[in-house]
Design a binder for these strands. Structure first.
Lengths: 358, 358
DNA sequence: GGCACCGATGTTTACGTAAACATTGCCGGT
DNA sequence: ACCGGCAATGTTTACGTAAACATCGGTGCC
């Protein structure tokens, strides 16, 4: 152990290099042990809180630790233990409320379990990039991976997850192959449609999300199904990219449809755009048209008018993701199956019975 | 804890356990080396892309890697290299647009530099929790730390950062002690005030953020300063907690002030609430009152009316954070000083000259 | 033809930690 | 008084990787 360069740590000759500038190499257990006059194993025992160290010795070690500013080396621990106490999260974007709130919940829950989150952003959802993310995740120090993405890229066979990495997926239908946690999109959409029908509307129009999004498809499908089951006509579908601007464009079109008295918009941000379009065209919400959103973002209650919307419990989704991931880690199993988190309809002021027509 | 268990890997007597089902312990270089019939050092050379491996050998090793599904062990590498290629991010919440967008930018930039992000959420901003986060960060496998927080907890002396951890702070005035990157709050606020004054408004009212927020204070201070410099009266300040609901409450109060023709709101979400309050009270924006926000969130263009606001370049803030952090890591220095990212006023439809009064 | 050199590969070692095992010293029972 | 046993601490080793050094053929040069 000669590489360790001459100590020179303590007893810095007060005339050489005053502040000892280039200081590298973190203090290790060996350093603490030397200062405390014990073996490094005893330092380890103190560090990990193991019993069997007499108080006097423990105090001595703790003092040395403080003096040297010792902090355990995570890499060495991970190597020794064979686990990293880390969960990787792959996501395409944090720009959507849902993703960032889910991530926050995941991080919080993981922290409670003593795990931390490692983020792998995949900016362009092309196959190779996804593969890249996973290749790196494989090399990365993670015990499990949670994938938050709105497209079903994972369902194509070309994406290969490292076989011994535990995976939990949010927003997908790969429940047969992977462990999936998601909001109950279908139920939420049905709540929205039924609410509008119950108010007396003849049918419900829909502004859907982009077709690549599994959630968007699920909501659109459920909307369609609910109308069919109720024996109502199914108006033509509009699509947007989740943005308020897209909602605005769809809203301008809908404003031209005299038949349109009720709209279910696939997320709150597009609903904001729809509201603006109706406002601009003089279609008063909810007097002339009712609007229901999806997500219940924090601002929804401050739209004009406050938006009736389907509340997603992102915190719960995050919690279940972490639970599922840690269960897989602990049992060493590869779970499959889908966990659905229920939604809740939040009634505000953007819905009302239709005006008597004609 | 049976991670060790006897090798039994190679030379498996072809009759014992056919598929060797419970397989634990990831494949290591030694496994690959054995299968490829080379030394583990050669495997290492292939794995790290070092030259000096003849193509035939390299191919042999690669084949063995694929066959065994080898993936390098990040912990071992980190231990060997003494660095983790990881940046820790401490934050209080992801619920604000600014935080999540900054985080996304940080993650993206870090990824481009071959670094990943480890998240440490601190849910309650009490002293001990912050200390806890840093204690854990100290043990954690991070080369640097970026702190995103809206309160100036770090300025109190009781919070001690591990001395050898490189730190970059967003949203703080600790530039003398730490490296700080932030939006130029003061300039942004001045842009908003001057825009309104230039339109002809006699003065500008302000709805500020919570006093714990450094950004909120900076914006309020600049608003105050700009008015004083212009010789205008300074109306009483309203405060909110950044939420649209708080903005709504402040807006209801402002709607009662007949003098109030121009409002600068400290963020877009509160501005949304202000708009709703004015709408509800029949004060038409921008005919009766002009409103300017701050942040330029994605939805701002879809408010009713579309919101004139101060654009923050979160992506740039994130980029500079990563740059500063990596610079510190590379040079081994502890940087100080503040980097300000400029803002830009985005003109939309919520501002107009005042109606001729009286 | 011998030797110096170089390129390809193997061997040793260290990174920091903690489990497993070894060693001490003390106490209590017979 | 002796010894078993236990509590406190020390020593060895392994985790997976890669730098540093060692080895071994072959090749070119004189």
């Amino acid at each position: 152990m000669s590489t360790t360069r001459p100590p020179e740590t303590s007893s810095g000759p007060p005339g050489t290099g005053p502040p000892a500038p280039p200081r590298r190499r973190r203090v290790s257990m060996a350093d603490v042990a030397r200062l405390a006059g014990v073996s490094s194993q005893t330092v380890s025992r103190v560090s990990t809180g193991h019993p069997g160290v007499v108080p006097a010795t423990r105090e001595q070690v703790l003092t040395a630790m403080r003096q040297l500013g010792y902090r355990p080396n995570g890499a060495a621990r991970a190597l020794k233990y064979g686990e990293f106490r880390t969960i990787g999260v792959v996501l395409f974007t944090l720009a959507t409320t849902g993703n960032s709130r889910t991530l926050e919940a995941i991080a919080t829950c993981a922290a409670e379990a003593g795990y931390v989150i490692t983020l792998i952003p995949v900016t362009t959802p092309t196959q190779d990039r996804v593969n890249g993310a996973f290749t790196r995740l494989g090399e990365l120090a993670v015990d499990a991976v949670i994938v938050i993405m709105e497209v079903h890229l994972l369902d194509t066979a070309t994406v290969v997850l490292p076989p011994d990495v535990h995976v939990v997926i949010v927003d997908s239908d790969a429940g047969e192959r992977y462990c999936v946690v998601d909001t109950d999109q279908a139920h939420g959409a049905r709540q929205a449609v039924h609410h509008l029908l119950d108010l007396g509307h003849r049918t419900v129009w829909h502004v859907a999300g982009p077709p690549e999004s599994f959630a968007a498809e699920r909501r659109a499908l459920a909307w369609h199904g609910a109308l069919r089951e109720a024996g109502r006509p199914v108006p033509p579908l509009r699509r947007g990219d989740w943005s308020a601007e897209a909602g605005y464009r769809a809203g301008l079109e809908l404003a031209e449809e005299p038949e349109c008295t009720a709209v279910f918009v696939a997320n709150d941000q597009m609903a904001l755009g729809v509201l603006r379009a109706f406002h601009q065209r003089g279609r008063v919400v909810p007097r002339d048209v009712s609007v229901v959103g999806f997500d219940d973002i924090a601002e929804a209650g401050s739209f004009i008018p406050p938006l009736t919307t389907v509340h997603q419990d992102f915190a719960e989704v995050g919690r279940r993701c972490v639970e599922a991931a840690l269960r897989q880690v602990r049992t060493g199993s590869t779970g499959t199956g889908t966990t659905l988190v229920p939604t809740r309809l939040v009634l505000r002021d953007s819905t009302a019975p239709p005006r008597r027509q004609r």
